[in-house]
Structure formats: structure tokens, C-alpha cells
């Protein structure tokens, strides 16, 4: 299981990386916005995408749309981890096909719960 973590703040990437490691996911790669994430995704081998919304370059919501529009990536599970909390935004992300939406600041328990739920659905 290889996970791509996309966030413009290195601290947040590190926190997510550490939490994922504690959950048993040790194979992670990082990108600092949608523009740098997309080539990594297109190169293949990524099984799960965790992305922020608000980033310079390409935002997370646009990255999600790019992923869903790409035949090779369209079924990739995507978890949005963001400080964006407007209802319109959450609805937009849901309609764009996000698999989970975690608001910052978040706890390890919440992250685990959402990740478990995503994989439950995929496996089920």
C-alpha cells in the first residue's frame, strides 16, 4: 500500500506521515501541491491519496477532479484533509467524488476512522 500525501506545509505532511506510520502504513510519498502530485500519480503505483484543499499551484479540489477525470486514476481512493469547512465546499468535494473528508485540526482517531471506512468500502 503506497500512499501519496499532498500538503503545502511540511509540518502537516510529517504529522500525517507519522499517523499513517502508526496505523501501519509505512510506504508514503509526499508532494506540496496538485501540480507536483499529478505527475507522481500519473507515474503509477499510488494506492491511496491524502490531500489538502488550499494549496498554491493546483488546489486539492482540482487535483481530485483531475484524478477522477483520468481513466487510469479514476477509482483511486481520495481522502481530503483540510481546514476548509464551508458547506458548499464539502458538498462540492462529495460531488467531485471524494471518499472521505477530515477537517483540521483533527485527531489520530478521526484519521484512522475515515481511512478504515474507506478501505472497508473498497474491500466490501
Amino acid at each position: 500500500m503506497k500512499i501519496l500525501i499532498v500538503d503545502d506545509f511540511s509540518t502537516m505532511r510529517r504529522i500525517i506521515k507519522n499517523l499513517l506510520r502508526d496505523l501501519g502504513f509505512t510506504n508514503t510519498v509526499e508532494a506540496d501541491d496538485g501540480l507536483t502530485a499529478l505527475p507522481i500519480l500519473k507515474a503509477g503505483g499510488i494506492d491511496f491519496l491524502v490531500t489538502d484543499w488550499n494549496m498554491p499551484g493546483m488546489q486539492g479540489i482540482d487535483l481530485l477532479k483531475e484524478v477522477r477525470a483520468d481513466d487510469a486514476l479514476s477509482s483511486l481512493p481520495v481522502l481530503m484533509v483540510t481546514a476548509e469547512t464551508k458547506r458548499e465546499q464539502i458538498i462540492e468535494a462529495a460531488q467531485a467524488g471524494v471518499n472521505g473528508y477530515v477537517v483540521k485540526p483533527f485527531t489520530a482517531v478521526t484519521l484512522k476512522e475515515k481511512i478504515d471506512k474507506i478501505f472497508e468500502r473498497i474491500d466490501g
Binding site: 488546489q59 479540489i61 481546514a83 476548509e84 469547512t85 464551508k86 465546499q89
Partner: peptide
Amino acid sequence: PLKAEGPQMNA
């Protein structure tokens, strides 16, 4: 409404 605003004050 979709514009990213970062953390909301007085949510």
C-alpha cells in the same frame, strides 16, 4: 463559495 479560505474565524 468554493474559494479556499483556510481556517474559519468565528465559525
